[in-house]
Design a protein around this nucleic acid. Structure first.
Lengths: 190, 190
DNA sequence: ACAAATATACTTACTAATAAGTAAAATCAA
DNA sequence: TTGATTTTACTTATTAGTAAGTATATTTGT
């Protein structure tokens, strides 16, 4: 694989997470890389092919992380912790997440991008749901609503947590992160 | 006040909530209203003055709602319910909320817009916090984390709930809305 | 082994469309 | 008639996208 192509994907993702999909241009990528805008079009003919590739790369990265955690026999608690660490890192870097960013622009995206975005979110929600369910059976987690709803609840907190932290104060995300754990950890009875 | 001006504000807000701040143009507004793009510039010289005005209008609308609820002696439970109804309506209309939309684009906004956005979120969070706190004292709500963190938690769920619902399925928001109530309503012991 | 053909990775130099924004003239309403 | 409103007719900048060319490898046929 071309290193230029990889770098474009990386930069494109970063730009979506910092400036939003409609807030960056091929010029932003090309000038940052010291190449010409046509070179970006060489690898990704349209902005939407770039967007779709970024989404596919992300799903792949997610699947690799899940597989890696299973190979290492991570329990559900540690799997969830690893997932949440991604968001802690994004917060440190003043980024939001792909879901929150593209969720804003969804009506301006073409079908392939929308389909890929939906696939990605579907996959993450169903993984979260399964982790929560089996973790609950083992007594690692405790919650009264359905695993699906609890998954949506946690994911929402993470997504909007990053957005709120960027508007208000970076450090507010720590509180949101903390609250998620307190809500599903058994030792904290209400 | 000019009815044209009001209509521009209304349409501008709708466009931010459906296509995102960087996803709409003055052309979108003018063609939808059957006027020329220069007429929009007459009322709002720049896109950022329009954005700032939309935010200020929203804060004002929020303050009016709060005042109205206090005049009618709404208890904390009904005040929270009224607030959440705004989000239910947005979900029905396939809109997200200003916070989630502008949270994505924040790095592309000018200072006045950023300041106004922060003011708006600050105001909403502190209101939510106060409602949660006095509601808890009356036994209307129950939660173990701080009122501030609980406010952030609820607001996050609402903001990202709308985004997730638009990506996945409109009806998913009902589950998120339901989960918020179950979490803070005393009768549902865990 | 060596030349010819071909593929890779770009640049140069453009479009065509759309963006925000403006100056000045025309229209409207009291 | 005066001031508020709106259009006409622009400008300037930026956007995504493309056509054609170029240098450098890589492959292929003989």
């Amino acid at each position: 694989m071309s290193v230029t192509r990889e770098k474009i994907l990386e930069l494109g993702e970063e730009l979506i997470l910092t400036k939003g999909y409609n807030g960056f241009s091929y010029q932003d990528i090309s000038t940052a890389m010291g190449i010409k805008n046509a070179a970006v079009h060489y690898y990704f003919p349209s902005k939407e092919t770039l967007g779709t590739s970024i989404l596919k790369t992300n799903v792949q990265r997610f699947e690799e992380m899940v597989e890696n955690m299973q190979n290492r026999n991570f329990d559900e608690w540690h799997q969830l912790e690893s997932f949440m660490k991604i968001y802690l890192k994004s917060n440190r870097e003043n980024k939001i997440c792909l879901i929150g960013s593209l969720g804003t622009d969804i009506n301006t995206l073409n079908d392939p991008m929308r389909v890929e975005l939906q696939k990605m979110v579907d996959r993450i929600v169903s993984w979260l749901e399964s982790i929560l369910l089996s973790g609950k059976e083992k007594g690692l987690f405790e919650f009264s609503i359905s695993a699906h709803d609890q998954a949506l609840q946690i994911l929402s907190s993470l997504i909007a947590g990053l957005q709120l932290a960027r508007i208000l104060n970076k450090s507010e995300f720590k509180n949101i992160h903390q609250s998620i754990w307190e809500e599903i950890t058994p030792q904290n009875k209400k």
